[in-house]
Design a protein around this nucleic acid. Structure first.
Lengths: 194, 194
DNA sequence: AAAGTATGTAACCAAAAGGTAACAACCAAA
DNA sequence: TTTGGTTGTTACCTTTTGGTTACATACTTT
């Protein structure tokens, strides 16, 4: 018998990640974690207190938002800035199954961890909105609306894509579908910032 | 003891609706239904076979999509047609907590019932896209993209609003938030169909 | 009225999930 | 080396959920 608390904590967190990737946050329970990690139930409670707490720790160590630094402003003007931002948003959700699961979890659950995430998202969102609003001279409310249209639908379509292949004839599980969506976004900004 | 199969079936379906309204499709289980309806477990199995089947029956009798007839085309041209369509979509989701729950359920589950609903949604969506595409002369793919941006985000934001009040500074639990979103949509169409 | 069928009830069972108590093994410091 | 705390294991408990069996009560048809 080897004794190593740090290692077992890592085992537990690794199991959590594995479960989330496969079945989402909803599936993270004591029994599932013990089964996947091979670590005894009791230790989960001992080291993390509760599943909620465990998930909080997991999310905390991930730092979803700091990965993308949206504050950098390119030189090519508002139009390209806006396009670039939302292309990045698409790529972010494309590359992260866990983020997709997190978004889904948010729709059924409410707890301090989630509220904290929302605060961070809100901050970043506002930064972008202010930047675009200033650069374009457009009303902030309007920018917020357009912005929400894009990020909202991208979030939704990526969540949906885990169980469904087509939405409005777009193939949301293939690059082709996402490319036409990007083209739609670009078209829109071309018209708006004409 | 009164014996009346039809009545108990109605009691069961009513309980299902109540549960969905409050906690969503995920919460519809045998025990929950018996508790809410007061009807014995056994009868659920006897009359509906399984919970899946019960939900299928419930959804079937609701006929979510036929409520709104999107095929009618107003005389004021594409721009107003497009605006009107999506305003309707917003109002539909606003007025129907059950529809919001259905959309959420779709993100975690997959079964024949859901697939059938998707087919219907797809059909209606394509009708709209074809209509707008023809009227405007725009590429179908482009129309599909823009269309998906709007319906996708509206779906997402309404789902989110059940657990969260703000998104990108929009108050998604108040009319004010949805009005600025509508204004954003209108602005977009004004630019696109300029 | 008797028989047969449809409806309803009570009690029970198994599996899965969350949770804890009690003990065994290990390590480190006195 | 003994003592005390940390780490790990076993075994158990409770609750919830899905599902069934056996029986009682009502209705209907002949």
């Amino acid at each position: 018998m080897v004794k190593n608390r740090e290692l077992t904590e890592q085992k537990i967190l690794a199991a959590v990640e594995q479960i989330i990737e496969k079945d989402g946050f909803e599936a993270v329970g004591v029994n599932a974690v013990t089964a996947v990690s091979g670590v005894n139930k009791v230790l989960i409670y001992r080291y993390f207190g509760s599943i909620d707490n465990l998930l909080a720790k997991y999310i905390e160590q991930k730092d979803f938002w700091l990965v993308n630094d949206f504050t950098v402003i390119p030189e090519n003007g508002v139009k390209d800035f806006a396009k670039e931002i939302f292309h990045q948003y698409i790529n972010m959700l494309k590359s992260s199954p866990i983020l997709r699961k997190l978004y889904r979890w948010e729709l059924t659950t409410n707890n301090p961890v989630i509220e904290n995430i929302r605060k961070q998202r809100e901050e970043i969102g506002l930064q972008i909105i202010e930047a675009v609003s200033e650069m374009s001279g457009q009303d902030k409310k309007l920018v917020a609306a357009i912005s929400s249209l894009i990020t909202g639908s991208v979030s939704y379509l990526y969540m949906l894509s885990e169980n469904c292949d087509v939405y409005n004839s777009l193939l949301i599980n293939e690059d082709s579908g996402w490319n036409t969506l990007k083209e739609g976004i670009d078209f829109m900004f071309n018209k708006i910032f004409a």
